[in-house]
């Protein structure tokens, strides 16, 4: 990889073939350099395929990665505003796990077929997307995965949650790659007890993982547009992500 320190990039809307060979919208950002780059699938949070998550995809391109973010709500709400699409998806019970895995697999295939790909691909997700990043890593062959405050991996979600959210810890033995987990100590979903349980489970299975929990931070501490933003946690978290993907995705 040749890192473009100027951060020059191109970003655009594309279509990828996801679950069921259906075409879904995705946001793709790539460095303008001529090198070979690792790929990152960015899995958006429950509020959807929004401006702030597109900014995250562009940040990865500026860091020297091919980044693609599939619109997980495209089927429910093609062309709708992100908040309307998120409401439509919620009303229908959320994104089924099987469909999520198919959509991420499609995004991975797009990245690996890209002429600038170095053949390595990882995932990162936030909130429900953090759980879905873990789901991807126990379902698909990956080189790295990052899960930011992933609720629903260890404990079942509260009553009233969409039926598709089932705990995933029992599938830890299938984790295909190193995992970076970033958590807020004041978060309740996942709470510190869940983080400790997952840490212990992965250690007992000999699965490579690196967890960081930030004091004074709760859920969604990376989210710059919300009161939950915690600058110290977010800055350290970005450093951890850059180092982790640098080790596992950059060639």
């Amino acid at each position: 990889m040749t890192k473009d320190i100027r951060g020059d990039l191109k970003a655009q809307t594309i279509m990828v073939r996801g679950h069921g060979d259906q075409e879904i919208e995705a946001y793709f950002a790539e460095p303008l350099g001529e090198g070979r780059y690792g790929g990152v699938v960015v899995i958006h949070h429950m509020p959807g395929y929004d401006r702030s998550t597109k900014e995250i995809a562009r940040r990865f391109a500026a860091m020297g990665y091919l980044a693609v973010m599939p619109n997980l709500y495209h089927r429910e709400a093609p062309g709708a505003s992100p908040d309307d699409a998120a409401a439509a998806a919620r009303a229908q019970g959320g994104v089924p796990d099987e469909r999520l895995v198919g959509d991420v697999a499609g995004a991975i295939a797009y990245l690996k077929a890209h002429q600038k790909s170095n053949g390595k691909v990882g995932t990162i997700g936030y909130c429900s997307g953090g759980r879905q990043s873990f789901l991807s890593a126990v379902s698909l062959p990956l080189d790295a995965a990052v899960a930011c405050y992933p609720g629903g991996v260890v404990n079942a979600p509260p009553a009233g949650a969409p039926v598709s959210f089932t705990p995933l810890i029992g599938r830890s033995k299938d984790l295909s790659c190193p995992l970076l987990g970033l958590f807020g100590e004041e978060d309740k979903f996942p709470g510190p007890d869940e983080v400790a349980t997952l840490d212990k489970e992965l250690s007992s299975l000999g699965k490579e993982h690196e967890f960081h929990s930030y004091p004074g931070a709760g859920h969604a501490f990376f989210d710059v547009d919300r009161p939950s933003y915690r600058v110290e946690a977010a800055l350290d978290g970005w450093k951890r992500i850059e180092a982790f993907f640098g080790r596992h995705l950059a060639s």
């Binding site: 429950m46 919620r90 009303a91 429900s128 405050y149 609720g151 509260p158 949650a161």
Partner: peptide, 9 residues
Amino acid sequence: MCTYYTDHV
């Protein structure tokens, strides 16, 4: 936290 709690009416 992300509660996911949803009631439909």
